[in-house]
Design a protein around this nucleic acid. Structure first.
Length: 425
RNA sequence: GGAGGAGUACCCAAGUGGCUCAAGGGGACGGUUUGCUAAACCGUUAGUGGCUUUGCCAGCGAGAGUUCGAAUCUCUCCUCCUCCGCCA
């Protein structure tokens, strides 16, 4: 959510920034009108309340003195009725205003490249050598099925399309990757591990920006629960409606969770393999920072995520998203893309974003510099560190051998105790 | 799921319709005293949100209601505790 004061005082700036996101700026004009109505109603209600408080005190005094207070009583009753009416209006105005405010995306950071879609994204850096094969590299799902470590038919039996069952060393590899990632982030990068609920209430999703606009991407359960699409939701909301001690910033969390996405808009896209699933595992990095330092923290967060790929020796590149490709809540985003030999291209494996105070304002997350100062909103950041299923797939593809075996990155040896997954083990 | 009980500020807690625009204590912070520490004494301590900001309005788990006036009365909900049932 944007600051309504900013909208009030500098609507032109907001509009020009949001135009780059293909956003319909007529909503901004509407906000101004409703906001004015709201402030007038607030002032009126408060003036009347002041009058009522004074009158009530007077009534009490008169009654104690045994004097009649009927006139004043009646007059004050009418004031009460009026207050009630104004407050009803006020409630409706607030709903209307919030409905719009919740629909407005974040303002892109000043240096974000302007562009319509992903074709304007900017490559920042590349790492690693793209492997060359003396044979035609196979797709990860083909490799996994052949090795007996991935089974899609069983998954269809259980849950339908876009699910997978891991077997034997496949299940072990998935588990090993989760542990490995968490170990790196906790032991080397200074993150605190968190394991949080994957079922959350709507207000948590409102806090991070998935609701109200993106309900169709979510699985909704009964009893007002939603399955989280990312651990970002649970972990960011850990500090909802809190004022954090400045000395505790930055707070850095690392959290494994399964993630659940309906993939409503992607029928027919990535139907093969484990790239796009309704349920997948992810290790997420979340930071709460001093606004003055959040862009430095975005750089280090991105490098923390990259470190995983480096240790696994998987080639990747880092791309900055342009204004048109930026997520709803984000002010600046780096995507990390890993190389997929079977497709001959890089594919997203992590998305690292600075949300500035957009989520913090929605979720009420503040900090106080010292005892006397006024609370300010923190900046929140997060990024995948990494998407586990896609890392699994990337290992299968990049580390495959002609005989169908897959060499396991050496760094995983302590977790798996093997050098390769082959058809006969 | 059933039956009870509770929720007041950083913590404990008083408060059953107007002398409470929330008492008292602890803690914390500041000061006096002191060679230093402790003790004692004095003082400060409701954080926050909003507005047309010397001020005003809101706020006692949340929301609604009754009333001229609600921490206090009524209703709904949430959370926690105890017991029973069920369960990994």
């Amino acid at each position: 959510m944007l600051d309504s004061k900013l909208l009030r005082e500098n609507p032109k700036k907001v509009m020009s920034a949001l135009k780059n996101r293909q956003f319909d700026t007529s909503l901004i004009d509407k906000v101004a009108v409703i906001d004015k109505k709201w402030r007038e109603a607030v002032f009126k209600a408060e003036t009347l309340k002041k009058q009522r408080n004074e009158n009530s005190k007077e009534v009490g005094k008169l009654k104690k003195e045994g004097k009649a207070a009927d006139d004043l009583l009646e007059k004050t009753r009418l004031i009460g009725d009026e207050i009630k009416k104004i407050e009803e209006d006020l409630g409706a105005i607030e709903v209307e205003l919030n409905q719009i405010l919740f629909q407005i995306p974040n303002i892109p950071f000043s240096s974000v490249p302007v562009g319509k879609d992903e074709s304007s994204n900017k490559e920042i850096r590349k790492w690693g050598n793209i492997p060359s094969f003396s044979f035609k590299p196979k797709a990860h799902d083909e490799i996994g099925v052949a090795l007996g470590i991935l089974n899609f038919k069983e998954a269809v039996k259980l849950s339908g399309a876009r699910f997978v069952v891991y077997h034997k060393l496949g299940a072990a590899l998935e588990r090993a990757l989760i542990s490995f990632m968490i170990d790196v982030h906790t032991k080397e990068n200074g993150y605190e591990e968190v394991l949080a609920p994957v079922l959350v209430k709507a207000h948590s999703l409102l806090g991070t920006g998935q609701l109200p606009k993106f309900e169709e991407d979510l699985f909704k359960c009964s009893d007002d629960f939603y399955l989280i699409p990312t651990a970002e939701v649970s972990v960011t909301n850990l500090h909802r409606d809190e004022i954090i001690d400045y000395k505790k910033l930055p707070i850095k969390y690392c959290s494994y969770s399964p993630c659940f996405r309906r993939e409503a808009g992607s029928y027919g896209k990535d139907t093969k393999g484990i790239i796009r699933q309704h349920q997948f595992n992810k290790v997420e990095l979340v930071k709460f920072t001093d606004p003055a330092k959040s862009y430095d923290e975005l750089e280090s967060l991105t490098k923390n995520a990259e470190m995983i790929l480096q240790k696994l020796n998987l080639p990747y590149r880092v791309v900055e998203l342009c204004t048109g490709d930026l997520g709803f809540s984000s002010a600046r985003t780096y995507d990390i893309e890993v190389w997929f030999p079977s497709e001959g291209r890089y594919r997203e494996i992590s998305s690292c974003s600075n949300f500035e105070d957009f989520q913090a304002r929605r979720a009420g997350i503040k900090f106080k510099k010292d005892a006397g100062s006024k609370p300010e909103y923190v900046h929140t950041l997060n990024g995948s560190g990494l998407a586990v299923g896609r890392t699994f797939a990337a290992i299968l593809e990049n580390c495959q051998r002609e005989d169908g075996a897959v060499l396991i990155p050496q760094i995983l040896k302590p977790y798996l105790g093997i050098d390769a997954i082959s058809a006969v083990y």
